[in-house]
Amino acid sequence: MMVEGHGAAGRVARHIRQLIVEGVLEPGARVAEAALAERLGVSRTPVRNALPVLASEGLLEPVGKRGFAVRAFTKEESYAATELRCVLEGYAARKLALRDDRAPVVEQLREAMTDGDAIFTKGFLEREDEDRYAAMNRRFHDLVVNGAGDSLLQDMIQRVYAIPFVAPDVVAFNRIPAEEIFPILMSAQHQHHAMIDAIAAGQADFAESLMRGHSAAARRSLGLEERFNEVPSSGAA
């Protein structure tokens, strides 16, 4: 039985996400709060709170007045959208690097990295680190996107985030063995630091290139390289 309390909705969301990733909850299937609560050994409240989170990630879609169903999607959608996300975020990194008033955003980015670095100091990852890393990763990408100061770009990126497995706070540790996910995410964290340094130095071309190449780590962290290995890379990674 899953223990409820602070962060229960996040833990429930992680378990439901796993059921979707593994195909236990099939595309188009109606998500029933009561059945999920019984399956996960929790009350309906954290399930009810978790479903909108998963909908915001693009994994669920609203049906009826208050219900949700598993969103149907193709492997090509998720794979290509991950590439597109990094192209758009690369442009955001470029715009941020060119801003004369970027220093406060750079400071916030470095603060976010301090939180992220703490996850890796012990040399291995635990299951609860998934939520911590996801939150840090989302904060990093939101700071870059919002720091660009382009509302149209922000809107376009949010639309891409709605494709399943594309938003930066979607991490699925269960897709990859723990000993393999650690170096993947550590590499991504090093990329984060390099991007911040490039933005701080006003190196717009380099910042954009690093962010666009970041798509490879994003795909590997979700097991997309394995899951969709027949889909060729566009070369952005």
Rank of each mutant, 00 (worst) to 15 (best):
G202Y: 09
L84I: 10
P168M: 14
G10W: 05
A37D: 02
E76R: 12
S215F: 08
A37P: 06
L143F: 10
G23N: 00
S56Q: 11
V3A: 13
R17D: 02
D129Q: 01
G149V: 12
Y91C: 03
R11H: 07
V87Q: 05
T74V: 10
G28C: 03
R212P: 00
R39H: 12
L222I: 12
M2V: 13
V231Y: 05
E180V: 14
I157P: 03
A118D: 05
L88R: 09
D150S: 10
E230V: 10
I157E: 02
F68Q: 04
R99W: 09
I119S: 02
N174D: 13
P62L: 15
V105G: 01
E179R: 11
Y133A: 10
A172P: 03
V170A: 04
L224F: 10
V105W: 01
H190T: 14
E77M: 05
M211K: 10
R212M: 09
A93W: 01
G58V: 02
L84N: 01
F68W: 15
A80Y: 12
H192W: 11
V53T: 13
H193R: 15
G58C: 02
F120P: 04
G64V: 07
V3K: 08
E180C: 12
R110W: 15
S151R: 14
D129P: 06
L185Q: 07
M211P: 05
R212S: 00
E225C: 09
A237E: 14
L185M: 13
E226L: 13
A217F: 14
E128L: 15
D115M: 12
V42Q: 01
A118H: 01
A216C: 13
I176W: 12
V3Y: 03
L210D: 06
G41I: 07
T45Y: 11
A118R: 02
S209D: 13
Y133Q: 06
H190S: 13
V70W: 07
F182I: 08
R132T: 12
